[in-house]
Simulated assay, not measured.
Amino acid sequence: MKTPPEGHQPSYQPPPPPARRRLGGVRTTWLIVGALVAALVIGAAFVLPIPLFYVFEPGPVLDVERLVRVRDGRTYSSEGGLYLTTVGVDVSVTFVDLVRAAVDEHREVILESDYTQGASDQEVLRAARLEMEQSQLNAKEVALSELGLAKPTAGVKVVETVEESPAEGRVAPDDLLLAVDGKPVCGPMDVSTLLADREVGDEVSITIRHRDRKRTFDVATAENPQLPGQPFLGVQLEQLERDFEAGEEIEFKTGRIGGPSAGLLMSLALYDQLTPEDITAGRDIAGTGTIACNGSVGPIGGVGLKVAAAEAKGVDVFLAPVGDFEEAQRVATEIEVVSIATFDDAVRYLEGLK
């Protein structure tokens, strides 16, 4: 093999470095656009609300003794606590929220239309506030009546009938509506609660006092013009004045909490403050349920979420309306769930804790 002469360089030359490619052209432009669109879509999934959907989730668990206070009267404290439970409603639901709710058993996705029933947001809030006000009156009457400090209210006043409704001509202004399907009523909310599981056109039995005469008859429900698809009696109702003893001024500080589901716990908190005995027996008691003027406890929505909230709070016992008991018990893992039909049921159970 021959070798090149000394000082002679081989003729091999290394290849030149690759030329720098400029970002440009149709393909590169589309890649950039695609990346930007993907980034925007991902960002929107976190921040942009999707209409049509709401998400229910466990809400705050609140010490109801702090929300119901007796002024100008002697009160008693308790070693334990009474807690009302709430459901949080997320009305700005994003795609990410929907995904989270799909994998979280303690979140529920519902259609906005199912929640509002055709009413505006303002109408829904107004109805919730009115339900809370009615619930406070009922809680006050039930607790004070149990203590002999109030006379039970009988009936709700008819202001007028709706034209062309089944009640027109059969119910008159100033009549007293005493009962629906044999169950006493003392406020508009009681009537709405008793009609909640009925369909438009269903017949119900109502008891009316017209002047000094009491009579019971059947009447078909009509569609509520303010809540499409919901039944009502075709009458406008007004709350009667409650007859409470002087010297027991009750103050409710429920703030923005709406709806009727705090009724049972508000009545228990008021009763507890006016009773020398500690009905909590040093335990933390949570619960939910509407309260009627006759002391009956009605079912509510979202009881599973409320049980989850109470367990997260570390509460010992959850009082659930009879109609919600099975669902509450199914969700509970550590908390004791007790079925409650009336205010007296709740008091007897709590007194048995001693």
Rank of each mutant, 00 (worst) to 15 (best):
F232E: 10
A312T: 12
G234A: 11
G59F: 11
P5W: 10
K151R: 12
P188Q: 05
A308P: 13
R74N: 11
A246D: 12
L84P: 01
E57C: 05
P260V: 12
S267C: 05
T254R: 03
D278T: 10
G258P: 14
I32N: 04
G295Q: 03
D175N: 04
K313P: 00
I340D: 01
F318P: 15
L274P: 13
D175R: 02
A44H: 07
A269Y: 03
G201K: 04
G263T: 12
D90H: 07
V204S: 08
S135L: 00
T3G: 13
V68E: 01
S78L: 08
V47P: 04
Y349P: 09
S78V: 12
T94S: 07
P18E: 02
M189D: 03
G73Q: 05
L353T: 14
T280F: 01
G187F: 04
Q9D: 11
I42A: 13
E245S: 14
A312I: 08
R170N: 12
N224I: 10
T3Q: 10
T280Q: 03
V109T: 13
V297W: 02
K157R: 15
R170E: 13
E327C: 05
I250T: 01
F217D: 11
V307W: 02
V64S: 01
I206V: 14
S261P: 15
